[in-house]
Design a protein around this nucleic acid. Structure first.
Lengths: 343, 343
DNA sequence: TTGAAAGCGCTAACAT
DNA sequence: ATGTTAGCGCTTTCAA
């Protein structure tokens, strides 16, 4: 990996000291134009590239940012990486990406990233943010930004999705169709996103003076399969719901399959809505009505904020929370004739 | 980012030299058990983490690997990252990921990664691998492994997909249904994957003594939309094909939408097959018959090979090519009753 | 405008 | 078994 030619070589050939070469290379401090030109020319001739490791050691800055994502691999992470990558590029930062292969390792990875000086800061997406992780972050004195932290703590720096209003919006939309029996397929019990979405559902119902019914409330775990079974359960009752809000798209897609199996038509027999706006939701027929999450935007903002923390433009110790709002994507699974989404 | 406490501090508190501390920390060279224990204890007490930058500089090894992916963001990259990440974790390497935001920057990124000493090696996925990139790699003296290089050069180190046989297999499968008029929706003209898939299609036809017909050969660009239009074009002829092989799943999915529009039933009116086995292909109805690419496996192997090059276990200068074979995923879009894929 | 020199924190000969 | 020392390649005071 080592570069054969170093700053010394450039200095030797230019008949100057390494200090001068360094000045030229970093555009820092005064250097006679003539000397500068010569150094630049020679460096170019020799195809000189500064060794970034040495540079990092000396400057105490790596220009890299650690990104820790949960184990689960899905469409989201792609978008997250995309958003972060775009912004990192803008700021000339490099990205060290690691998906935490297990909860245990999760914490180790954070520790390693933060305390080994391998990165200048960390973007952490920990679905199960807890006190232990909080402590680690506090102690590390390393800038950390949380992506959609599953916590209600206010003493953190985090960027989140407005699950509550998203859910409220989409359930209200279903209510707008006149449906009164609206069921829900929940997400994992301890998942904050899922909890917030449920709350949005609940509040939308009551705000519209509909009654919440336990019979229409079934659990899921965000997986396709769980959506399949949940739908089956919901629709096996004699008093079926007229519409269903699945707390994420994958479960809604599972519901499509169950519906096909049971010969239930969407939206004629039962309307369906999801959350996340994954690619497949635009593929299925009828198109799924769902909530779009501006995840790329969220990631961009998170990275941008982190960079400012690193550069000292923002106080790293001050808590900060930002929430991005979601958008309603109208398909025809809810009963709408006109879809706002186009293929 | 700097760690407050260094090896010197540990040495001071343990009343030994930094050399001894280093020995203990790296488990290298003889150290009295007693001394060792004490040093470890103190290091732990102080929560000491070695500075990896300094370590890299001294060892001339960063333990990080650069991963350069094309601009395009899709399901593939997720899987690639997943495969690479898993394997990197096994080898205790870190991943610097960068998607090349443009062709120009692509090359710059490669250069930067390879010659700045930021990484020990690079996994490069360059859809448009060309001589310029080849030259850069050669000159860099940095281990580079190509992921699915779009080239037929034999003087490279690359891991590829067996597009040819995959296409041949799936087209043969269509032929097994008795279809004789089999159309194709091609991929981008200059894309090697697409070219190889076309060749597989062509050879399957002729091997089965079917005639290739230009009327059944339409172009696409791997996008959903292009599949939509290509399908429409194919099926607007009076002498329609009885089956269509789309060179990737996205185009096949576009075909589904066009079919719905034209009131054409799949597979009753026309059978359909794709390539890639993306998530959505398992969602649509009928399930798409397609070719599964073991991309995670491919990525794992690529990374593993790269690590061995870096560690000197494999000659980095020797060309090496590996091809992973694909698998047929039977849905019902081809006319099969029984699907091999389960939801 | 330039150079000498002291680090940055660690590894690895070489000595003892 | 342990310590001394010379780097790794670069940045950055401080002098000149």
């Amino acid at each position: 990996m080592t570069n054969k030619i170093s700053i010394h070589e450039i200095a030797r050939r230019s008949n100057v000291s390494i200090a001068t070469v360094s000045r030229v290379l970093n555009n820092k401090g005064p250097v006679k134009q003539e000397t500068r030109d010569q150094i630049i020319r020679i460096a170019r001739e020799l195809n000189y590239k500064p060794n970034s490791t040495a540079r990092s050691l000396s400057r105490r800055k790596t220009d890299s940012i650690g990104v820790i994502l949960p184990e689960l691999v899905d469409e989201f992470f792609m978008n997250i990486i995309q958003g972060i990558d775009e912004e990192a590029h803008r700021y000339n930062r490099y990205l060290m990406i690691s998906s935490s292969h297990s909860q245990r390792n999760d914490i180790e990875t954070i520790l390693e990233f933060m305390s080994s000086g391998r990165v200048d800061g960390v973007i952490l997406m920990a679905p199960s943010f807890n006190d232990e992780i909080y402590e680690i972050i506090q102690k590390s004195h390393c800038p950390v930004v949380l992506l959609n932290p599953g916590t209600t703590r206010k003493d953190i720096i985090g960027f989140s999705i407005d699950n509550y209003n998203g859910a409220k919006t989409i359930v209200s939309h279903l209510m707008g169709h006149g449906y009164e029996k609206i069921g829900i397929i929940r997400g994992p019990v301890h998942n904050i996103d899922a909890q917030q979405r449920f709350k949005g559902y609940y509040d939308a119902l009551t705000a519209g003076s509909l009654k919440y019914s336990e019979a229409y409330d079934v659990s899921g775990d965000f997986s396709l399969k769980s959506g399949y079974y949940a739908f089956t359960r919901l629709m096996s009752q004699s008093d079926r719901p007229r519409a269903i809000f699945a707390c994420n798209d994958y479960m809604a897609l599972g519901a499509y399959q169950a519906a096909r199996n049971m010969n239930i038509r969407i939206p004629d027999d039962v309307a369906l809505a999801g959350f996340d706006d994954v690619f497949s939701s635009g593929i299925v027929n009828p198109r799924l009505t769902t909530i779009h999450i501006p995840i790329i935007e969220l990631s961009r903002r998170a990275l941008s904020y982190l960079v400012k923390m690193i550069d000292g433009d923002i106080d790293s110790t001050a808590p900060y929370q930002e929430t991005v709002s979601t958008g309603l994507v109208i398909g025809s699974s809810c009963g709408c004739k006109q879809s706002t989404a186009q293929y």
